[in-house]
């Protein structure tokens, strides 16, 4: 009986050694908690899209002597999960801006910019020699938009998820798609014998 008590005490000590705690981790590390869309997928997609776009010869030609102005439309989430696709396009946008090859206009803040312009022009509070003028914004030449879709298959022990992210660069004036990139991700979760 004493042996059993000692073993159980040992197990209890081990178990308490694994009690929950909060730690900072590497945000760029691989995350495989569940097969659902996660941070690693977002980072892989953004990196692949930017790398592909940067070395595509017609895009290289476009950005050789100037920095075209783009706007991000949206990425349609066609998966069955909730995915913040704006977060993906934000990361792509940041990387493209930081490359020094592209400039962006932000359509999500148009109303607030208009309010600020009206305040500067009409409120009488702002020195008109420093006020920003109406009608001087630069029109976007290209639009970035895309889709995120998934195929999910499962049986009793396995769940297989396939994601496909597609991004397109469209010339607004001509309607021509100048570039299109794809990234595929496959994730499989298998349950082990004891469900651990």
């Amino acid at each position: 009986m004493r042996v059993v008590m000692a073993i159980m005490l040992g197990v209890a000590l081990l178990a308490s050694g694994c009690a929950s705690k909060v730690e900072y981790g590497d945000p760029q590390a691989r995350e495989t908690v569940t097969p659902d869309f996660g941070s690693s997928d977002l980072q892989m997609i953004a990196t692949k899209m930017v790398d592909d776009m940067m070395v595509f010869p017609p895009v290289v030609e476009l950005t050789r002597n100037r920095r075209p102005v783009l706007f991000v439309d949206r990425v349609k989430n066609k998966t069955s999960e909730h995915v913040d696709t704006e977060s993906i396009t934000d990361t792509i946008q940041s990387r493209l801006i930081n490359s020094g090859k592209f400039r962006f206009v932000d359509m999500t803040v148009v109303d607030r910019v208009r309010q600020q312009l009206e305040y500067q022009q009409d409120s009488g509070m702002v020195d008109q020699s420093t006020a920003a003028q109406m009608g001087r914004q630069i029109g976007a030449e290209f639009m970035l938009y895309g889709n995120l879709s998934s195929i999910v298959k499962r049986d009793n022990s396995t769940k297989d998820v396939y994601y496909k992210f597609t991004l397109k660069l469209l010339n607004i004036q001509s309607g021509i798609i100048e570039w299109s990139g794809e990234k595929e991700i496959r994730k499989t979760r298998s349950r082990s014998l004891f469900g651990l």
């Binding site: 590390a29 930017v50 940041s94």
Partner: peptide, 28 residues
């Protein structure tokens, strides 16, 4: 350059095989 924004990328290689990895610098 951009030390916090380069992600760890996953690669699975079959036994006794070769694979090419490619990347573009974040800026010039």
């Amino acid at each position: 350059l951009a030390p916090q924004s380069q992600p760890w990328r996953q690669l699975v290689m079959a036994g006794r095989s070769q694979a090419n990895v490619q990347a573009v610098a974040p800026n010039p």
